Measured scan of single mutants.
Amino acid sequence: MATGGRRGAAAAPLLVAVAALLLGAAGHLYPGEVCPGMDIRNNLTRLHELENCSVIEGHLQILLMFKTRPEDFRDLSFPKLIMITDYLLLFRVYGLESLKDLFPNLTVIRGSRLFFNYALVIFEMVHLKELGLYNLMNITRGSVRIEKNNELCYLATIDWSRILDSVEDNYIVLNKDDNEECGDICPGTAKGKTNCPATVINGQFVERCWTHSHCQKVCPTICKSHGCTAEGLCCHSECLGNCSQPDDPTKCVACRNFYLDGRCVETCPPPYYHFQDWRCVNFSFCQDLHHKCKNSRRQGCHQYVIHNNKCIPECPSGYTMNSSNLLCTPCLGPCPKVCHLLEGEKTIDSVTSAQELRGCTVINGSLIINIRGGNNLAAELEANLGLIEEISGYLKIRRSYALVSLSFFRKLRLIRGETLEIGNYSFYALDNQNLRQLWDWSKHNLTITQGKLFFHYNPKLCLSEIHKMEEVSGTKGRQERNDIALKTNGDQASCENELLKFSYIRTSFDKI
């Protein structure tokens, strides 16, 4: 039985969820670079991206490699990797027998973001014989899940209580170790020597080791999670996991709180800001991140802002960003909400898709409305799209047979046209069989910064309504002859009103 693990408890099935942008060198404390989270699957090609990484700022997932063999891993080693800020997950990587050479110096898994409450997941690794993470000293947050690894031993010899604050939620089941077939031998045991430290858990006094050649490092209890030197002297209180010299914040392997210019500090002093819960960055760093993602459509890219001495992905609820200094300031009234469309555009074809934009005031991208039916549609669209004030790209209304009016965009005031449909149009209306009105132009103002209007096959939309939009939106004169079809717009509506004058002759039985 794995020490510190839980057996036999019912657990939810383990679901495996399925960018080499360097964020800056980590400095003297770390020998390499800070790398983003990685999802490495199918083959070993991307694994080489770990070569210079000291910190993975995010998670590391290595999974679904069915053609790899043990010899493929023999020359692979990433000794610079010290810390993973989120979680480490391995799933069905064939041929991998140990992690001792792959990650010989991995010391800390912070667990800032977890995989279903777990910071370390080893699942269905069919050839893994031992973990071998002999320098792993601290899992700051989260638990361990090690399950269905039929060859995995050296679990009962690990004292997880020396690595985690609590072992109650560890789930370590259905491994070879369960069948008591392992016969784990710690260093020196074969020669009758006791080389590794022994600890007591559940009444068992057991030597602690990761492999037959690597003991588990056990520091004096007084050192807590700070770690200790090879001689057993406690590291500085700002260290986490390990250090090369005692009581020196510049000799830590990793930091308990924050890293700044080669030393570990309790908090980031001005003019620095907390970033990702582990390091200090200056304003320029946060500003660069903001600008890199301002026009990016890459998933996970955030326009970072500053709030409460932190550089964070977005302002919290009730705050909006001051564009001059990136500071989050309290909103006066309802907060603006910028919604970034991942692929640059979004099609609204149902109430469900409209709900995804609920509360958005600025759309960074283009909207395509293609709704053919739905219950209580006008009210639903207004509830979900009615706060949109600005669209950076274009607005396209296409084959939306259920629409009679666009009044559900009740606050839309600006279409920038930074991206144009077919390279020309910022407003595009095609084949809307029941569209009769755009907006009530006596109450609604709309500016279209650039781009043209396109109207074709809107049989109940009168040309007068379209011409009014040209005047109000500032697009009059931009359109070419064929942009607004004269014969297919309003051709099934009563669009022309003329005053009919009647004269009559009164007659009676005795007068003409």
Score class of each variant (00 low, 15 high):
C182Y: 15
K224L: 13
G203Q: 10
V126T: 02
L99I: 07
F115S: 07
L155Q: 07
E238L: 05
Q276P: 03
V93K: 00
P70D: 15
I158K: 03
V144F: 02
S284W: 07
K67C: 06
S284C: 02
Y171T: 02
F78W: 05
Q299T: 11
F73I: 12
Y87P: 03
T229N: 11
E33P: 14
D86H: 15
E130Q: 11
E151T: 02
L332C: 03
F103Q: 00
S324N: 09
S225M: 05
L164F: 15
G192W: 11
C315V: 01
G58Q: 00
L289I: 15
D184G: 13
C209Q: 02
S213Y: 02
Q245V: 10
G262H: 06
S225V: 07
D261S: 06
F66Y: 13
L260S: 02
L120P: 00
L155K: 04
W160C: 01
C280S: 00
R297A: 10
C234M: 02
R74W: 04
R256W: 03
R69L: 05
Y273H: 09
L155S: 10
G333C: 13
P336L: 11
S225I: 14
R297Y: 04
D248S: 07
V265S: 04
N242T: 11
F258W: 08
S323Y: 12
E71F: 13
R141K: 04
T199P: 06
R263E: 02
L131R: 00
V121C: 15
D247Y: 12
C331N: 10
T199S: 06
S161T: 12
D277T: 05
D75G: 03
V218G: 09
C335W: 15
I201P: 06
I139N: 00
C331G: 03
H290E: 02
N42E: 05
T68N: 01
C311R: 00
I82E: 07
E168T: 07
N175Y: 06
P316T: 03
C328Y: 02
I109W: 00
G142L: 01
Q216H: 10
R113G: 12
L64M: 11
Y272M: 15
L289S: 10
D72G: 15
T68W: 14
V265H: 01
W278P: 00
A119E: 00
K129L: 08
I82L: 10
V218T: 09
V218P: 08
L60E: 00
R208E: 05
T157N: 05
E97W: 13
F275N: 02
Q216F: 07
L81S: 00
H127A: 11
K251R: 12
W160G: 01
K80H: 14
S244I: 04
Q61A: 14
P313A: 04
H307G: 05
D277H: 11
G203L: 13
T68H: 12
Q204I: 04
T199L: 11
D184P: 05
S166I: 06
A119M: 00
N135Y: 02
I40N: 01
L44I: 11
C53N: 00
D72R: 01
H48A: 02
F258R: 05
V144Q: 01
D159T: 11
T140F: 06
Q245H: 10
K191P: 10
Q245E: 14
Q287P: 07
C223T: 01
C223K: 01
D277Y: 15
Q303R: 07
Q204C: 00
N282R: 13
L289P: 02
S284V: 04
Y304H: 07
G192K: 13
Q303W: 03
V253E: 05
R256S: 09
Y272G: 02
E151Y: 12
V253L: 15
W278S: 06
P330I: 14
C209L: 02
S54V: 13
P79G: 07
H59Y: 04
I158N: 05
E238D: 11
P271L: 04
V305P: 03
Q287R: 15
Y134K: 01
E314A: 12
G37I: 05
E51V: 12
V55Y: 09
Q216G: 07
K100M: 08
I40L: 08
A254I: 01
Y154K: 10
A198H: 15
S98K: 02
E207N: 05
L133M: 03
R208S: 12
R110N: 06
C315L: 01
L102Y: 01
F103V: 02
Q287G: 15
I201L: 11
V265D: 14
R298Y: 04
C286T: 02
F103D: 00
G232L: 04
W278M: 02
K251I: 04
L81P: 00
K310Q: 06
L164M: 09
H236N: 07
K251V: 05
D177H: 13
H48P: 11
C311L: 04
M137F: 08
D277P: 03
A230M: 15
Y272W: 10
L136A: 01
Y259S: 03
N42Q: 10
Q61R: 05
G203T: 13
I163S: 01
Q287S: 06
I139L: 10
D75L: 10
C228G: 10
L327M: 07
D247N: 02
E207K: 15
C239Y: 00
K251M: 10
S237T: 09
D169A: 04
V55M: 10
T157S: 06
V281K: 02
K176V: 15
C228P: 03
I109E: 00
G58P: 01
W278R: 02
K217P: 06
N52S: 07
L155E: 05
Q276C: 03
D86N: 05
G37V: 04
G188F: 14
C153W: 01
N42C: 13
F115H: 00
D39M: 09
Q204R: 04
K193T: 07
C280R: 00
E147Q: 03
S225E: 07
L64R: 12
G142K: 00
F258Y: 08
L174A: 09
D177T: 03
L60K: 01
W278L: 09
H212R: 07
V218L: 10
C182L: 03
L114M: 15
L128T: 03
L102T: 03
S324H: 15
N179A: 05
P79I: 03
S112T: 10
P249A: 14
I185F: 15
I201Y: 12
N308V: 08
N170M: 08
F283N: 10
H291V: 08
Y304Q: 04
